[in-house]
Design a protein around this nucleic acid. Sequence first.
DNA 1: GTCCATGTTCTTTA
DNA 2: CTAAAGAACATGGA
Length: 271
Amino acid sequence: MPELPEVQTVVSTLQPRVEGKRLARVDLKRPDIVRPRGFDLERALRDRTISVIARRGKRILFTLETGEQWYIHLGMTGRLTVESPAAEIAKHTHFIATLAPGGQELRFRDPRRFGGIFWIGTEQTESNLGPEPLGLRPAQLAKRLAQTRRAIKSALLDQNLIAGLGNIYVDESLFLARIHPLAASNELKTEQVARLNRAIKQTLRRAIRHRGSTLRDYVDANGAGGGFQLKHRVYDRAGEPCRTCRGPIERIVLGGRSTHFCPRCQRRAKR
DNA sequence: GTCCATGTTCTTTA
DNA sequence: CTAAAGAACATGGA
């Protein structure tokens, strides 16, 4: 569910309700979602105050008043919401923190458990996470894409190459840039990379404006779904007419992921 | 029962 | 050796 626009929306809706609040009670129902394994998260968070919530790639990064940091990754089905303590506790809720003042609860739910809670602490450990796509310059993107011969689709899914894109927004960005998903990353022309860089930013900005895409699980911190799924040009539209040329959208499997594109609008470079 | 799913990481293959 | 492809993880919905 969560790519950059969804994670950004969660962060934006979380900020006014959680920043400055103290974690008065912390109830970790599934210790195995915490990394490193065996880390005593309840003890580390109890009575701490959250000063800042931010997004880095698909991570929701929390900074405590102590300067210590930790983050939540939503995986595929994760939800991070602020709810009334009276609200029913949904199945697969793994973490509940009571916020003070106010008594509202910060809850993390993740049926598939591909997500998790990651303690960083205060160490300045190097992260391999790639640069943020918004604010990325074309020359920087070109340099990174030149380092691999993989299909551009696979390259853009690599969080170490560029952080925050997932299956939906890679397909949408490639369509907007009119680049075939199987095109070799290192063979893209300068002009194509420039177009791709613009397409990624435009796609992400539009998606954020529409509060993300809700296909199944995704909701923001207030429990509200997004609306960008209605604007998808190719994702999950196999067989439907291209919004540009009316030809049918094609679906292929690439790197184990379903990939959607318009074979007419996204021609492969002749070689 | 089958297939598929917004993600990441470990293993296998080339 | 490295890069890339494939499998695995866990649950639920169509």
